[in-house]
């Protein structure tokens, strides 16, 4: 049976603390359910958004709890799109190479897996710099017909 995704737009704004990551995960879970996504897809999107927001807290706001993170979710035409906007330090994904997993494992390095996971779990990962010194990362997952 074909499951039709429901068209929705949802938004949440939170302060840049790691405590708020659970609120963000719950928001994505609820929105994914509302959009009738499969459990597996919801799990992948939650993890990708968690990694993106963790990067914003760490690298854009340097753990300052006063920053703001705005998350917009759009589900339309079998495309689930999450955009995460911050006003922290500019961060360019192109500057970050995928980790060489062989080297990574040899050195047993910790960290640096977040962006790699985002790219693996989502179909599109786009970074953009907007007016008003805002940064945005957009994560897109295409949903099967």
């Amino acid at each position: 049976m074909k499951i039709k995704t429901k068209e929705i737009n949802r938004k949440i704004k939170v302060k840049s603390t790691t405590d708020n990551l659970s609120r963000i995960r719950d928001f994505i879970h609820k929105t994914g359910m509302e959009c009738k996504l499969k459990k597996e897809a919801i799990g992948e999107i939650i993890l990708a958004v968690d990694e993106a927001c963790t990067n914003v807290i760490k690298h854009a706001y340097h753990f300052s709890p006063e920053g703001e993170i705005e998350i917009n979710v759009k589900c339309k035409n079998n495309k689930f799109s999450v955009s995460i906007t911050d006003k922290g330090e500019k961060f360019n994904i192109k500057d970050i190479k995928d980790p060489d997993l062989e080297e990574y494992h040899k050195e047993k390095r910790v960290g640096g897996l977040g962006i790699f996971l985002m790219k693996k779990l989502m179909d599109e990962v786009k970074y953009s710099h907007l007016t008003g010194n805002r940064n945005r990362v957009t994560l897109v997952k295409y949903l099967p017909n």
Partner: peptide, 19 residues
Amino acid sequence: SYVNSTGMGMLIRNYTTVA
């Protein structure tokens, strides 16, 4: 019930400590 990359990093760090 859930693990992110930081959680996986914690497992790697402890793997190294033990090794």
